[in-house]
Simulated assay, not measured.
Amino acid sequence: MDVYQALNERHATRWFTDQQIPKATLEKIISAAEEAPSWVNSQPYQAHVVTGETLQSIRQEHQHLGDVGENGHADLPVMARSDWSAQAQNNMQAWSDGIAQSVGPDWQKIMGDAAGKLYNAQAIVYLTLPEGYSEWSLYDLGAFGMALMLAAKDAGIDSMPAYQFVSFPEEVRHNIQLENDEKLIMGIGLGYHDTKAAVNRITSTRLPIDQMTTFHD
């Protein structure tokens, strides 16, 4: 699979099958992602790959916190939609408007149930940065995360980067050993796309190149 094919075929998977991912495949994906660029080769991030019983424990805690109405409080601050740029708000609204058409009238419940179960991901890669990280490190971590998802697609593995995975940092810290200064920045769910799941019918569009790119001769 070439990079253009991987970019075009990779989409957010909101429900995975129960098929597990071989550890050797996960190691191959992480190793490939390490080729992503990093400021002065600082490589400030850490990747924590969670599967099996540990993942199931995190999933159960996550679902319980949602059931009791606990609000998310990720380590990385979340900005209200109303504070985003006008262009971003328009894009988000267009995406939201299309969900009901794709999933049906019960889309809110269906999406909520999937999120509450962490999308049935068979592996979650938690990405962290040390406390006091340079803001440039967020670019490095994003590049690593995208490289990971493209490598996963090449290996036949689908992916989902989501706030849900890091919305309750304490549930992660209860189950995996993080250094005291590690900030939980993003979680990427991995697994095999469930073709029968309604939430996997959700699609998104990208801006035409002439609306987001300016060429300066």
Rank of each mutant, 00 (worst) to 15 (best):
L118N: 08
L129R: 06
G116T: 10
G66V: 01
S42R: 14
I30R: 03
K153N: 08
Y119Q: 02
V40T: 15
I30C: 07
L55K: 04
Q56G: 04
S137T: 04
L118R: 09
T54A: 04
D140M: 03
Q101L: 14
A47S: 12
E70S: 14
E61F: 05
W107S: 01
H48L: 08
G69W: 01
A36M: 06
N41W: 04
S31I: 00
A152R: 05
M160G: 02
Q108W: 11
L148C: 05
E53N: 07
D97L: 11
A33C: 02
D113Q: 13
S85C: 05
A100D: 09
A115N: 13
A47G: 05
M149K: 05
Q89M: 11
L55T: 01
K117P: 08
D106W: 10
P37I: 06
N120T: 10
Q60G: 00
N71Q: 13
G66I: 02
A94M: 09
H62E: 06
I99E: 00
L55I: 02
H62D: 07
N90T: 15
H64L: 13
V125C: 13
V125A: 15
Y119F: 15
D97Y: 03
H64I: 11
L55S: 06
H73E: 12
A86I: 13
N90E: 15
A36L: 07
S96F: 12
M160Q: 13
S102T: 11
T54N: 03
G142C: 08
P37C: 08
D83C: 08
L76A: 10
W107R: 02
A36P: 03
G72W: 02
W95Q: 12
F144E: 00
A33F: 01
L148N: 03
L76N: 07
K28W: 00
T128A: 12
Q63W: 03
R81D: 13
G66P: 01
A33Q: 02
D67R: 14
E131C: 01
V78K: 08
D154W: 01
G145E: 02
S57D: 05
Q60L: 09
Q60D: 09
W95E: 10
W107N: 01
W95M: 13
S82T: 13
G156I: 00
F144D: 01
A143L: 05
Q122Y: 03
Y45V: 02
Y119S: 05
V50P: 00
V125Y: 09
Q93R: 13
K153L: 03
G132F: 04
A47Y: 00
I30A: 12
S96R: 13
L141T: 05
D158G: 04
A94I: 08
D140A: 04
S42I: 08
